[in-house]
């Protein structure tokens, strides 16, 4: 029996948060209201997505104080504590792409990642910059105009409508198209959180002594370029593209991986 601790914890967090967002509309709860673009925690603390706020800024509009404060709170949280945890612990699209990925493994569709010429993992950073440029040109938050993330979130809260087609497209793209295509190559929001969370303190730590080089972790990891130290060095995963999902820890049968606090004294 494989260990599913972090997987279950993540699903509970994701579904729980979505339920709280849903309840704000359906039952009028004041725990977590709004959507990622801008939320209110306990009807008091503003939260806002930094990349959305940046798009609005480049669309040429001075943001209200609540959005600025909210974006700062979120930025500081992921910058200091969470790293890119938004992607694996909060974002609802993660459940869709994880399902696609799991099916991909079960159906044995190309297990290895194909190296596409123009769809590389760094493409998302270009898309992130492009999103800001397009926002400036068109005068609206460009990624928000088609973001599957908030489309899915609003779908859960207010009803999907035809928006479900976007979610299905992402699922099919990740299943039959590119392995880890959306979250690992395209999503500019993930790119933004990768940059924000680069120096965060919660990190996966590898213990080289215990590792038996089975490579289960690399198979399950959605961003397995960050696991370059496996069976080489006993260091932490410090790459900002690690989503702190903890799947590698779950699948490791040798206790060679664990969450730890980044060693602040040592430059790694």
């Amino acid at each position: 029996m494989k260990n599913l601790k972090y997987l279950l914890l993540r699903r509970a967090t994701q579904i729980g948060l979505m339920f709280l967002y849903f309840s704000a509309n359906a039952y009028g709860w004041h725990i977590l209201e709004g959507t990622f673009g801008s939320s209110k925690l306990f009807g008091l603390i503003p939260l806002a997505d930094p990349y959305t706020a940046l798009q609005a800024l480049s669309a040429g509009f001075l943001l209200g104080g609540d959005v600025i404060a909210g974006a700062l709170i979120i930025t500081i949280f992921y910058m200091v504590v969470g790293g890119r945890a938004f992607c694996s612990w909060v974002c609802p699209i993660n459940m869709v792409t994880d399902l696609a990925n799991w099916l991909r493994r079960k159906l044995k569709l190309d297990k290895e990642e194909v190296n596409y010429r123009f769809l590389k993992r760094r493409t998302r950073y270009w898309i992130m910059v492009l999103g800001l440029i397009v926002s400036a040109i068109t005068g609206i938050a460009a990624f928000e105009a088609l973001s599957p993330i908030t489309i899915m979130q609003r779908g859960i809260i207010f009803g999907f409508g035809a928006g479900i087609s976007v979610v299905i497209s992402i699922f099919l793209f990740d299943l039959f198209g590119v392995k880890n295509g959306w979250c690992g190559h395209i999503c500019p929001l993930g790119a933004a959180y990768s940059l924000i969370g680069q120096k965060s303190i919660i990190r996966v730590k590898h213990n080289h002594e215990a590792c038996t080089n089975c490579m289960d972790c690399k198979v399950v990891c959605p961003e397995n370029q960050v696991l370059h130290m496996i069976n080489k060095e006993s260091i932490s995963v410090t790459d900002g593209e690690c989503t702190n999902c903890g799947r590698c820890i779950d699948v490791c049968n040798d206790d060679a991986l664990s969450f730890s606090i980044r060693d602040l004294n040592k430059k790694s």
């Binding site: 209201e33 709004g34 673009g37 939320s39 959305t52 938050a141 809260i157």
Partner: peptide, 10 residues
């Protein structure tokens, strides 16, 4: 309105 609305649904 279109460039200011952050689409939060509040």
């Amino acid at each position: 309105f279109l460039d200011t609305c952050i689409k939060c649904g509040l």
